[in-house]
Amino acid sequence: MKGIKNTFVLFLLIALAWSCRNQEAKTVAPESEVAVLAEDPLPSWNEGPSKAAITAFVEKVTTQGSPSFVPEEDRIATFDNDGTLWSEQPMYFQFTFALDRIRAMAPDHPEWSDKQPFKALLEGDMEAVMKEGEPGLIKLLMASHTGMTGDEFEASVLDWIQTARHPKTNQPYTSMVYQPMLELLEYLRDNGFTTFIVSGGGIDFMRPWAEGVYGIPSHQIVGSSVKTQFDYNDGNPVLRKIPEVNFVDDKDGKPVGIDQHIGKKPIFAAGNSDGDLQMLQYTASNPQGAFMLYVHHTDGEREWAYDRDSHIGRLDKGLDQAMADGWTVVDMAEEWKVIYPFDL
């Protein structure tokens, strides 16, 4: 299974980095920049160290006259997606999307019936698919994402998002988002933060649905991508994806992506794996102050329990540094009243 993790990273290199929850802004009290809410702004969080740390940080950076005050234009918050804003088990959702696309495309590719790893996938033999190794999986992923314009890919993503169901819960994948994190995003925005997704996943896989689900518009998404080519297309210009890597937004690529796309160092960053460690380290170096948060998957009953030895979302070095440096580590089992919106 360890190979799956490495393969998915490669998938992110070639991914066509190309339901909903409307959120209403709460009114900020005129006498203060701190959003004074009559109700609990984080109702799905149990009272505990993580909730207390979050609210204390927000209060000190938004209070005029505080030595820790940070102007709104510098209140940048970055969030990983897989395993941080929505689930990532039993495999990354974008990887599932790619495999489903191969199955949907198969009638137009009769040659796949005798060609590996396509033959194994179409026969439902995932063990044989995995025996093909990374080169075989890359063939699947390349075939599922190339040859389309941006509009065509967006349409395929939206169709999948609207119809596909998670194998464990039978819920739409966009229902597999974390209710406590939705509340956290809204709470930060209520207090003048600008929220960004900084994910190893494909930027154009997330763009079609992220604003409706998270309230984060497409121009505030940083992700992996492949190169595009401009095609004038007889007066109907389109962008076409080519099978060459453009950018990998994972590990040390995340601070680079933040610098290139956002241009400011975050004061708040959240992740769940070692793939997010460099983003949190980068945020921790902000002289204006910083808050680093790890979502720790400890709930094997309501979600999944995994960290150091997981083939997906491994949290090892990041957990060690979080403990050593006093970063906030959210114990999902202990600190979240509910996991998903459909639990409410």
Rank of each mutant, 00 (worst) to 15 (best):
M181T: 13
E183I: 08
S224D: 08
M176T: 02
P172H: 14
E183C: 10
I203N: 11
P208C: 08
D259M: 11
I203H: 11
T283G: 10
S199P: 02
G275F: 00
V238W: 00
N246T: 00
I258S: 03
D299M: 01
S199N: 09
E186M: 08
D274P: 11
P243Q: 14
V213N: 06
M292Q: 15
L277P: 00
A284W: 05
H261V: 06
I221M: 03
S175D: 13
Q179D: 11
T194P: 06
S310D: 11
M292T: 12
Y187W: 13
A284V: 04
G235T: 10
F230N: 05
G201F: 05
G289T: 02
G223E: 07
Q281G: 02
I197D: 09
Q179R: 12
R302W: 03
Q179L: 10
I242Y: 09
K265S: 07
A284I: 03
L280R: 05
G212E: 04
S273R: 04
D190V: 01
V222A: 07
T283R: 08
Y282E: 03
R308D: 10
T195H: 11
E183Q: 14
A305S: 14
F247L: 08
G212C: 08
V198P: 08
L182I: 12
E183D: 14
M181Q: 15
G223F: 06
E303G: 04
D234I: 04
G257F: 06
